[in-house]
Amino acid sequence: MRQGVGVEITPLAPSFKLTKKRGFVYDSKNNLQMRGLIVLLLSKAAGPSHASSDLLPQDMISGIYPSQRNLAEITELIHTAFLVHRGIVNLKEWTDSDGPLKDMEFGNKMAVLSGDFLLANACTGLAELNDTKVVELISSAIGDLVQGIYYESSCSAEESLCEGVDVASWEDQTFLSHGALLAKSCQAAMQLAKHDRDAQRQAYLYGKHLSLGHKLNSDLQPFVKSRLGEMTLFSLSAAPVVFHRQIIGNERWHQQLEEARTLRNQLDYTKLLAAVKSEKGVSSAVDLCRYHSNRALEAIQAFPSSEARSALENIASAVTKF
């Protein structure tokens, strides 16, 4: 595999086999294992703990303990498992023109089984780390993912459920589905190296704010990259839309939705895009993205200066580039 800045990312060797599963996170051009990479970089940036008596520096490889490498793989497996589960299709919305129903039923079964298989392997590796606090942290992150994805699915199925969501609620719900796994994995990496609570807290904050900044960057892409008049699809629960709805109020938002509906009762996203861009929803989301980037940069300053820390600083700064 490719090498990161200041850290050699080599294949790990826990008792469960991971080689074939890497195809889920590698597209032959780019390494998509960003969560595992961040866990490795943070582990290297923090280094060994002075309070540790049972962990020896000579056990480290490229400045990273084997248990931290295994944790990075486990984090990626959990993320991939949930990506596979998200590929399940709602068959209630399936029509004959979409293709054979039996094929989609089979595909759904394979998605469930494949995701469960990856998640089971991740849990097996998690138990082999022999650290109850790490098990508790990652288990709670899995619970957060389930809760966050359930909310996302409910919100997409019933638009009315999203009406009362303000920016603070959006951040809380987004953290569950997009930030909890990375934040708690970063904290768990510090726990495995026996770092104190302060170091664990700063690692947690870095993962949390980096995840939220990345999600904001992703939500902003259709609004900052597209031009007015271009047909661009975006989620009605995206951060700029949430800001826009909060600024103009629900009554005016529903009016804009009705004005954007076509004769076939479908939404004209070009009109909605123009409406959101006409107010301060986009600029407010950009400001929030920069806020989370700055908070991540503040958190990483708690660790000694090194190439690994510089790489983490560059990653945190990159989320504000559109």
Rank of each mutant, 00 (worst) to 15 (best):
G148N: 04
L145C: 02
M110K: 13
R290L: 07
M231A: 15
G99M: 11
Q202C: 10
S53G: 15
S53K: 14
Q255E: 11
R290W: 06
E259D: 14
S177T: 07
K280W: 06
L42A: 07
H79P: 01
L182G: 03
A180D: 04
R227L: 13
E230G: 12
S317T: 06
S97F: 03
L42S: 10
L32A: 00
L272D: 13
N217P: 02
E258F: 02
N314S: 15
N31Y: 10
E93H: 14
S154P: 03
P304M: 00
V242L: 08
S114Y: 07
I300F: 01
L216C: 06
N90Y: 04
K92L: 08
D144Q: 15
V276G: 05
S49G: 03
F322P: 03
V25Y: 08
P66T: 03
I248C: 05
L101F: 11
W94K: 03
G36S: 10
M231D: 15
S67G: 03
G87V: 01
L42D: 09
Q173T: 11
A275F: 05
P100H: 08
V286N: 08
A122S: 11
F106V: 15
V276M: 09
A203H: 09
H79V: 02
K271N: 05
N121R: 13
V286T: 11
A141C: 02
V224W: 02
G63C: 02
E298T: 13
N108V: 10
E298A: 14
L129Y: 05
K194D: 15
T19N: 12
T262V: 01
S67H: 04
S114R: 11
L145E: 05
L41Q: 08
P66G: 02
N265D: 15
W253K: 06
R197Y: 10
I300R: 00
W94T: 02
S306E: 08
Y269G: 04
L272W: 00
Q191S: 12
A141I: 05
D144K: 11
P240E: 08
E258V: 00
S62H: 15
A239K: 02
A260H: 03
R2D: 14
I138L: 14
D268H: 07
I247Q: 02
N90I: 03
D98E: 14
E152G: 01
L18K: 06
G23C: 04
C186G: 04
V276R: 05
R309E: 04
Q58I: 15
A120H: 06
E105T: 13
L145T: 13
L205A: 07
M60P: 05
L297W: 03
N217Q: 15
V135E: 13
S305E: 12
R252P: 00
T320V: 13
P240N: 11
F223C: 01
N130G: 08
M190Q: 11
G47L: 00
Q221L: 12
G148R: 11
G281I: 08
H79F: 15
V7K: 01
Q256Y: 07
H195Y: 10
E158S: 08
H209L: 09
L113V: 12
E159A: 13
Y150E: 15
S160V: 15
